[in-house]
Simulated assay, not measured.
Amino acid sequence: MEPVNFSEVIAQTDIEIQRLGWTIDQGREHLIKNYRKRSRALLTKVQLLDFLQYLQSQPDPLAGF
């Protein structure tokens, strides 16, 4: 398995959060609700990858327009 570049994963989560139009507060609320952590920096490697996968699975809010 290829090693994971976590700065790249963080950057990808930034892109997905922007795509979804989430505010900082919305992102924080999701992290607290699902991981009981207030920041991506506090997530484990597995949690960070899970968060990215979740974001990528969400439909584009502008796709219907």
Rank of each mutant, 00 (worst) to 15 (best):
I32A: 10
L20G: 02
D50P: 10
F65E: 09
G27P: 04
D50R: 14
E8I: 01
L62R: 11
Y35S: 02
E29N: 15
L42H: 14
Q26T: 15
S7H: 09
A41H: 12
G21W: 02
W22L: 06
T13F: 00
A63T: 10
T44A: 01
L43T: 01
T44Y: 01
V46C: 03
L43K: 02
P59V: 11
G64K: 15
V9A: 01
E16G: 04
R38P: 14
Q26R: 07
D25G: 05
A11K: 14
T23F: 14
I32M: 12
F65L: 12
E29R: 06
R28E: 04
R19S: 08
L52R: 07
S7C: 07
H30L: 08
K37C: 02
F65Q: 08
K45P: 05
R38D: 08
V46H: 03
W22M: 06
N34I: 02
Q58M: 13
D60Y: 01
Y54G: 11
V46D: 11
S7P: 07
F6Q: 06
R36I: 10
S39Q: 03
W22V: 03
K37T: 00
S57I: 08
Q18G: 05
L55V: 05
L31H: 01
I32R: 11
S7W: 06
I15M: 09
N5E: 15
I24G: 08
I17G: 00
K37N: 02
I10F: 09
S39P: 06
D25P: 00
A41L: 08
Q53Y: 11
S57D: 13
Q56L: 04
K33F: 14
